[in-house]
């Protein structure tokens, strides 16, 4: 990692490189949460905000990637209705398969069968909990990165995450057929 001054210089000098490197994953994350229509606006706003605020970006605190996820997540928060609509769509996104899982045993273990309850439970989380949950699950950020991205204390990341996961587990009837070694 280069020193602060030169890294900021790099960021401003090579914004194109930032765009090229991160457009794909930021767009994916936003499109997952908001659906494709709103995603484009929010992604454009994200990069624009990053560009405008490049002189306050502090590479000693966050990687560019973390920083962009933070901006995108805050902008997603202004589109709550889109997010809830996208989650409703996810409940039935793979509905064409549901006819196959007609046997109860299969339905019980099938990730397909859990979709409606899971989507509903995620929609029911409060925004802060959902942000942390999805930055872990979809973006793969560490607790430390999330704390920096959202500007919240490190301990808050853990408590939001465990609350969110507990609510989801409860919503799925306490049965989680997919073991998760990552906890």
């Amino acid at each position: 990692m280069t020193g602060t001054a030169s890294a900021v210089h790099d960021l401003t000098a090579s914004f194109e490189a930032v765009f090229d490197a991160y457009f794909g994953e930021i767009h994916r994350y936003v499109a997952q949460r908001l659906g494709p229509d709103d995603a484009e606006d929010v992604v454009a706003e994200t990069f624009l905000a990053a560009y405008r605020r490049r002189d306050v970006y502090d590479p000693s605190r966050a990687s560019v990637r973390t920083w962009l996820y933070g901006i995108a997540t805050k902008l997603i928060g202004k589109h709550r209705r889109s997010e809830i609509r996208a989650l409703k769509a996810l409940r039935v996104a793979d509905g064409d398969l549901s006819g196959h899982f007609d046997e109860q045993a299969a339905a019980r273990v099938s990730a397909q069968a859990l979709r409606p309850d899971l989507a509903k439970a995620i929609a029911g989380l409060n925004r802060g909990d959902r942000d942390v949950l999805l930055l872990v699950a979809l973006a793969g950020l560490s607790h430390e990165e999330i704390a920096v991205a959202l500007g919240i204390p490190y301990g808050t990341v853990g408590s939001r995450l465990s609350r969110a996961r507990r609510k989801l587990r409860d919503a799925l009837g306490g049965v989680n057929p997919v073991e998760d070694s990552r906890g």
């Binding site: 990730a111 989507a119 699950a137 979809l138 998760d180």
Partner: peptide, 9 residues
């Protein structure tokens, strides 16, 4: 749980 969430999205 993360795997289920990724799968959902």
């Amino acid at each position: 749980m993360d795997e289920l969430i990724r799968d959902l999205y």
